[in-house]
Structures are given as structure tokens and as C-alpha cells.
Computed example of a mutant assay.
Amino acid sequence: MTHVVSDNCIKCKYTDCVDVCPVDCFVEGPNMLVINPDECIDCAVCVPECPANAIFAEEDVPADEQHFIALNAELWHAPGWKTLTKRKAALPDADQWNGVPNKLEHLQR
């Protein structure tokens, strides 16, 4: 079992979740975070910390976002994606993108 970062993180990349993660399982890409499924201990402390409500337990990922399970598993070890261990500023226009649906086309790999 793991937790999954979903669509609403794209173009927001709030990092409140990173500060509370006891195992440093968040990985940062250009405009999204993902969770390393091999490191996540399923503690769920990150879920309430996400201002974008973009983190779900794997079994709770909405039906229309199931593809984010595989996407997290793929991107956590993508070239240039690095483990993030400390909170940093969200993207400059994060508040404008928060809640915008179907942002996968904007994902920067």
C-alpha cells in the first residue's frame, strides 16, 4: 500500500506534505510532486497537509485518476526528479491552478 499524488498537484506543487513525511518519500519534478511507492509507509500524515487535496491512499484514488498510481511509480525515479526533504515555496501561480481539473497535459517530465 502507498499514497499517491494526483492531478491537482500539477502546476501547484505545494510542499506542505514534505515537512511531515517521516520517511522522505516525496520526489520533486518541474511542476509536480510524486511519492516513491517503495519508501511510503502508508502513515497518511501527508494527506491533511496538502492544500490542494491531491494526495490519496492508493485504494481511495478517484476512478478518473487511477492512472496516477502508475504515474507516481514511473516518475519517482525519472531523470532529474529528486527526493525533496524540506518544504519550499509553491509555484508562483499555484493558487490560480489549484482546483483546475484535468491538468495532466501540463505535466512537465
Rank of each mutant, 00 (worst) to 15 (best):
T2P: 10
H3W: 06
V4K: 01
S6F: 03
S6W: 07
C9P: 07
C9M: 08
K13C: 06
T15H: 04
T15K: 08
T15Q: 15
T15R: 02
V18T: 04
D19Q: 13
P22R: 03
V23R: 07
D24F: 12
C25H: 01
E28L: 10
M32P: 03
L33A: 01
V34D: 01
I35A: 01
P37A: 06
P37T: 04
D38N: 13
D38Y: 11
C40G: 05
D42S: 13
A44L: 13
E49P: 04
I55T: 02
F56W: 15
A57D: 14
E58T: 09
V61W: 05
P62T: 07
I69R: 07
L71I: 14
N72D: 14
A73G: 13
A73I: 09
A73W: 07
L75S: 04
L75I: 10
W76K: 12
H77A: 10
W81C: 09
W81Q: 05
K82W: 06
K82C: 08
T83L: 08
T83S: 07
L84R: 15
L84I: 14
T85Q: 13
R87Y: 06
K88Q: 13
K88N: 06
A90P: 13
L91W: 05
D93Y: 03
A94Y: 02
A94Q: 04
Q96T: 11
N98A: 10
N98Q: 14
G99I: 10
N102E: 15
K103I: 02
L104K: 11
L104Q: 12
E105G: 09
H106W: 10
L107S: 02
